[in-house]
């Protein structure tokens, strides 16, 4: 890993997008990486588009500014695809991960991706409803991310989710999230 991996998360206020970035950073930290996780602060309104960022590197990260050219873009809410340009600043070898039941090929066409760019989809909303009983797509997305981007082991992410949710939630919610994480990892599709 020569350079810093930069990730941009798109979600809506209240969906736990920032928590997703945090959980992923903690997982990469436990694999020995240097990490950053930070949101873009604006008016905090539930349902409004929000962005969060990660930087992951084998070297100390000194830069403190927003990510402008993310290698990886995560869209936690597919309704954002019609509202904002999620491809902005993404390089030719960029990777997209979208929470949707749709086929990756369909989203690829919609976003007019280049052939060198990779496209993954995962139905994280359904997975979260099945496993947690409500819309909390984070864990399934982080699971899918573990497969789409080879930055940290699935075990590290598993441990990080367990610890992170263990602080705030009941055993039932933790177990649900861990199942969602596994299912996201298994079900993510590339196309």
């Amino acid at each position: 890993m020569a350079e810093t991996l930069e990730i941009r998360w798109h979600g809506r206020g209240g969906q736990g997008t920032v928590t997703g970035a945090k959980v992923y950073a903690e997982a990469c930290l436990s694999s020995g990486s240097y990490v950053q996780a930070f949101p873009e602060y604006g008016p905090e309104r539930s349902g409004a588009p929000v962005r969060a960022f990660n930087r992951i590197s084998s070297k100390e990260i000194r830069v403190h500014c927003p990510v402008l050219h993310p290698k990886v873009v995560i869209v936690a809410d597919a309704t954002l695809l019609d509202a904002i340009d999620v491809t902005e600043g993404v390089p030719d070898d960029g990777v997209f991960l979208v929470n949707t039941p749709k086929d990756p090929g369909e989203i690829r066409k919609k976003l007019k991706l280049k052939t060198t760019q990779r496209m993954f989809t995962v139905d994280a909303t359904r997975i979260s409803i099945d496993n947690i009983g409500r819309t909390m797509p984070n864990a399934a997305i982080v699971g899918a991310l573990a497969k789409a981007v080879d930055m940290t082991s699935f075990d590290s992410i598993h441990e990080s989710v367990r610890k992170s949710f263990g602080k705030k939630f009941s055993q039932k919610v933790i177990v649900g999230n861990l199942y969602a994480l596994q299912t996201g990892y298994k079900e993510v599709k590339e196309g």
Binding site: A25, V35, Q36, F38
Partner: peptide
């Protein structure tokens, strides 16, 4: 915010 609210190692 840049430091106060950003997570880093």
């Amino acid at each position: 915010f840049i430091i106060s609210h950003s997570i880093e190692r």
